[in-house]
Amino acid sequence: MASVIKAQNLTLAYDKGKNVIIKNATFSIEQGEFVFITGPSGSGKSTLLKSMYGQLKPYDGTLIVGGYDMRKIKRSQLLQLRRNIGIVFQDYKLINEWTVEKNVVLPLIITGYSLDVQKVQAEKLLAHVKLSEQAHKYPLELSGGEQQRVGVARALSKNPFLILADEPTGNLDEFSSGVVWDLLENACDQLNATVLVVTHKIPTIFNIPYRHFIIENGGVHEVH
């Protein structure tokens, strides 16, 4: 199996190395794996995720994501990589002046898919996240749970090889959390996407095999 993410002695830091968050982490994640990353608040879970979509450059060591060395990646390559990653944020990051339907197909708009393809994909995904009725509404007209479901649908819209989710159920009720976990499970199980979820708590009922990493005191350790 090919490694989708490979970290070798990875060090992540802010302020040009003054504030080290992750130190000498070594791990690899393969295609189609579901991975939970947990750890106390401020341990560096979100920082690790940021480095994977190029928001933070590794301070030292190596981090390869989708074949790109994240220390040496060029701006144009970074945009190319991001087009093939689905990202889910705790605060949703939806475009409030766009309809739900348009938000869902943002990755398709960016890649230049036709309107017909966009429409078909939006209908399919909104049905998956049980929001077909809300297609023409705007994000601020939806509840937090509904907005997050739109966020997950957007992350899945282009069948990404990698899905990064930062506390995707952090602000959600039980029903919305259930829908989000189901969607992420399906993406991994049926679409063979690698899913990496940063969370405080792993759900008690989870239907597919997963790996679990804990971040503690700057180290990344796998729990077996």
Partner: peptide
């Protein structure tokens, strides 16, 4: 700003 930043996170080039 917010829209542009979200689009950038999903890989949109500057002109888009």
């Amino acid at each position: 700003k917010e829209r542009m930043q979200i689009m950038e996170i999903f890989g949109a080039p500057l002109m888009l």
